[in-house]
Design a protein around this nucleic acid. Sequence first.
DNA 1: CATATGACACTAT
DNA 2: AATAGTGCCATAT
Length: 102
Amino acid sequence: MKSFNEQCYFVLRKVPRGKVTTYGEIARAVGNPRAARAVGNAMNKNPHAPRLPCHRVVGSDGKMIGFASGIDKKIKILRAEGVVVEKEKIDLEKFFFRFGKL
DNA sequence: CATATGACACTAT
DNA sequence: AATAGTGCCATAT
């Protein structure tokens, strides 16, 4: 069992290209549904840098938040991944990936 | 060990 | 619908 943030990175790596997830979902995937904030904190540390697709993580409403490099950059990357971003938002109904959950 | 910080989520207004 | 306030958790100092 690795540290909490290590698990976050692990589950985040499972997110396929062209899909996105939320901090809360990651928190849930690691067993701490209330640790959404801690997840974002782990992403900020981002010790794995470009290896970690942290740009695929959005708010619970698909709202573009986070990304120290700039939301604009994040949106750009997501669009490049094939995700449709409108008004800094994403259709979770279409691009929300679930961690092997149903 | 206690305090402070932060890329969130939820509820109420 | 948008904004404000509160609660939660892990990490760093």
